[in-house]
């Protein structure tokens, strides 16, 4: 029976674009996702099974443990044919492989920095630099923090000159939106320079 194929063929499926929101624990990842998402942020989990080294050995099975790691994500629909998905990274280094999964095919990343704990975002920056994932750094300005100039933060982060750095308030929709726009503009600039070279 193949009479129903046209209905499937005519359905428009939006292009999904993935953006990763990274940074240290408490830097405001989920806050930023919530600020810009059109839906209340959802949570998806990955169950990690610590498989024994000798996986075929049944004696190890009873010692398998399962840990769940939660990832928050939000969605922004752009017109009828593009959907942005924003994924907050699990905030622990030992879940790097989940980062790999999120970063694979991602358009780019936002690294949120907290000037009170600037070192917390170093691993994120290192990670995206190594992977070659385009990213911007957004300094989340918490109310009680001393303000630093962009140059000071850039210097402290030892950031490549071409990587955009912005000050933001992750709770604020307009401010968080500006960060995303800066990221996509950065990706566009990279894409343009690539086609020209």
């Amino acid at each position: 029976m193949d009479s129903g194929h046209s209905e499937v063929g005519h359905r428009s499926v939006p292009t999904a674009i993935k953006i990763v929101v990274a940074g240290g624990f408490g830097a405001g990842k989920t806050t930023m996702v919530a600020a810009v998402s059109e839906i209340r942020p959802l949570q998806t989990e990955e169950a990690l099974t610590s498989e024994g080294v000798d996986t075929d050995d049944l004696t190890g099975v009873e010692r398998k443990t399962t840990t769940t790691v939660a990832m928050d994500f939000g969605r922004i629909t752009i017109g009828s044919d593009i959907v942005l998905y924003l994924f907050g990274t699990p905030g622990q280094d030992r879940f790097w492989f989940l980062w790999d999964e999120l970063a694979l095919g991602a358009l780019g990343a936002v690294v949120l920095a907290d000037t009170r704990r600037l070192a917390d975002c170093f691993p994120s920056i290192d990670y995206f630099e190594r992977r070659g994932t385009p990213f911007v750094v957004a300094v989340n300005c918490f109310d009680d923090t001393e303000t630093y100039s962009e140059a000071e933060v850039r210097d402290a982060l030892d950031l490549d000159g071409h990587v955009p750095l912005l000050l933001c308030d992750a709770r604020d929709r307009v401010s968080s939106k500006a960060v995303l726009i800066a990221l996509v503009e950065h990706v566009l600039a990279l894409a343009t320079s690539r086609t020209r070279s």
Partner: peptide, 18 residues
């Protein structure tokens, strides 16, 4: 594979319009 420039521009404009 980066999306087409047209897609990126659409995203930028879409975000601005939100």
């Amino acid at each position: 594979v980066l999306p087409d420039e047209s897609v990126l521009k659409a995203v930028i404009n879409g975000l601005r319009a939100l």
